[in-house]
Design a binder for these strands. Structure first.
Lengths: 151, 151
DNA sequence: CCCAGATTGTTGCAAACGCAACATAAGGGG
DNA sequence: CCCCTTATGTTGCGTTTGCAACAATCTGGG
């Protein structure tokens, strides 16, 4: 990636192998993401970020506090607030008050939200399959295992 | 990731292995990126996007037309324009006119820009090494090879 | 019970991004 | 040579993001 550097000692510089892996990860992930997003957009559907919220909610039983949704999706509080704003405006989610915590609330998936996730999956699934079609299932297992070591 | 789906035929649904690999890629890449960015920010340095531009420029001899910079970095024209706006405002890059094309221009790395890339690498390099420290060089080669199949 | 500190969700503001439109210049066919 | 098409870089506008501050509520020690 770049040559030796006087300000840092040699054992701080990542090896070529590591550098190449880093570049590959940071280049390929957005590329694949963009391909799938393009398919969704072509179908007139929302982006993958919405899907994550809908699916994250559905997976947890259809209702979750923003706090917990944030933990599941690795998102900041204020981002959750705004996703819920948009999803609620489209009728895919509803905010209900939270009994056990006066300041909290619960985001609840509506029927329309459930239906939307299904409609998106009908595009997302095949697009994902297509994007990863260059590798076999076995390779996918290897890939996932290596990445999980890093997460 | 999710159960069978009536609207699409079974052979359109990605296998569990593929789904897990997809999730791993899309989750791990931003996580690692954020860790390194945090180190840069802690050091009071610009983000990785600036580094990409500086390094992309330096690698090509220190001067490149926005068009070509866009191709190297996989960025849209208008993003290049705006990165150059900010980098130029900080004195890291200069816009010079392009002789062989009247409408074009050339983005030239300044001494300050070169110095900044070095300073950033002194943080970026170790941070990258740390982020990928859970895998060996050999595993990194495997990882990069698998990802390259997808790119 | 009371109160200081922490937690939860929201918001104002500034910065950044995506998209479409624009001005300018290059290229190519008649 | 002229005109039409394409390419290049920029900009305006609406949307989205990050950060810091905020109000409301919970928690635990005294």
């Amino acid at each position: 990636m770049q040559q030796a550097e006087p300000h840092i000692s040699d054992d701080q510089i990542p090896s070529d192998e590591i550098q190449r892996a880093w570049v590959a990860v940071q280049r390929v992930a957005p590329t694949l993401y963009a391909r799938v997003e393009a398919d969704l957009k072509k179908a007139g559907l929302p982006g993958l970020d919405w899907y994550s919220v809908l699916w994250g909610l559905e997976r947890e039983g259809g209702a979750l506090r923003p706090r917990d949704l944030g933990k599941v999706l690795f998102l900041e509080r204020y981002n959750i607030t705004r996703f819920l704003d948009r999803l609620e405006a489209e009728g895919l989610v509803e905010r209900k008050e939270c009994e056990e915590d006066g300041r909290g609330l619960v985001a609840v998936l509506t029927d329309a939200g459930y239906a939307m996730r299904l409609k998106m999956w009908a595009v997302y699934g095949p697009a994902m399959k297509e994007a990863l079609s260059p590798i076999t299932d076995e390779e996918a297992v290897t890939l996932a295992a290596l990445l999980c070591k890093l997460g």
